[in-house]
Design a protein around this nucleic acid. Structure first.
Lengths: 182, 182
DNA sequence: GGTGCCATGTAAGGGGTTACATGATTAT
DNA sequence: ATAATCATGTAACCCCTTACATGGCACC
């Protein structure tokens, strides 16, 4: 069984050879908001994928700077396709803000609306990052990549709307208090 | 620094003493959809929290069946409050279905709409579980707990609507294909 | 007497992050 | 010259899940 990180690597390699560094960059400007990965994961995983014969690494130094490009083998492409054609099972989320809200029974309305406001601002920041990505790479990405970006935007917007509704429910008279970005 | 799991434990203990088993049960019918935990986490964490003086365990056997009830110490309550009053930082999600969609550039429309349909059904199942919880415990839970349940329902409904819109975008003429639950 | 729930735990392993270490190259 | 970026990697650690192990109790 391959980890999801392994599948992400295979996924990016389907369009052509990449170095570990480049894969990390791609993740940071695309899947990051619903699937992150770090170097500490990527480099060892690449070696293991090579060991299993799903990718091959080729030394492609740039000047004196060492660099290894990886590309899919036939087995790797097959494995990727198999994964893509099977149902996606894991769906996890960890939302510390929501967790705090859940346990905030004893807090004041002001305190709770502060948390909600912070959550809203965090979502706005995430939205900004997505919009920035849209503006830089959106022209060169495909249909399904565009869809996931779209989902991200819609999701954050949904959350923002929900926070706003909740704040209003806590604080029906005073609508002037929410800080910034309205 | 306490882990989120530790905070969840403290959070549940604020309303009265509980055993590890009971904490796990509570998690499964409440925070589970945005924060899960297993026995392998809970029992060791309880011991560590006791070691740090944030909870105290008392043997409360039921007949011959061993049972340890934990309750918050003053330090534990203080620590919980501190956490509740600070901004919630971590917000992660891992959505394997979305990940597959992202890499599905080369798949057929039928294949992609299959994935979307599976995702939709999974969300429906999650919604059913939330509604079941609402019907059983909703009367005895507080305002902020109710809000998080609410969020869960709204979130799944948002996702379902998005999947439906996306399937329609792929398959504008044939609206009859989506399997079940319409 | 078996099934299912109550109740507690541990061992092994997976998956992941953070911090650190090293060095080349490019832009300012 | 120096900061930023390219590029690769490892060690330590954290958090968590799965599987296993044990046994009492209740109900049919």
């Amino acid at each position: 069984m391959l980890s999801n990180t392994a599948h992400v690597i295979l996924g990016f390699l389907q369009y052509g050879p990449l170095s570990g560094y480049e894969i990390k960059q791609k993740i940071d400007v695309s899947t990051r908001f619903f699937f992150a990965a770090s170097y500490g994961q990527i480099y060892p995983e690449l070696k293991q994928l090579e060991h299993s014969g799903l990718v091959t690494g080729t030394a492609k130094a740039r000047g004196q700077r060492a660099r290894t490009e990886y590309e899919l083998t036939d087995a790797g492409r097959e494995r990727l396709d198999e994964w893509l054609r099977s149902p996606g099972v894991t769906l996890e989320m960890r939302d510390e803000g929501l967790l705090k809200l859940f346990f905030s029974e004893r807090l004041s309305n002001a305190e709770i609306t502060s948390r909600l406001d912070e959550m809203r601002l965090a979502r706005h920041a995430a939205l900004d990052r997505l919009h920035a990505i849209e503006n830089t790479v959106a022209k060169q990405i495909g249909r399904s990549e565009q869809m996931t970006l779209d989902y991200g935007v819609a999701l954050h917007e949904f959350a923002i709307a929900w926070y706003e509704r909740s704040v209003a429910a806590f604080d029906p008279r005073d609508r002037s208090k929410s800080k910034g970005r309205n």
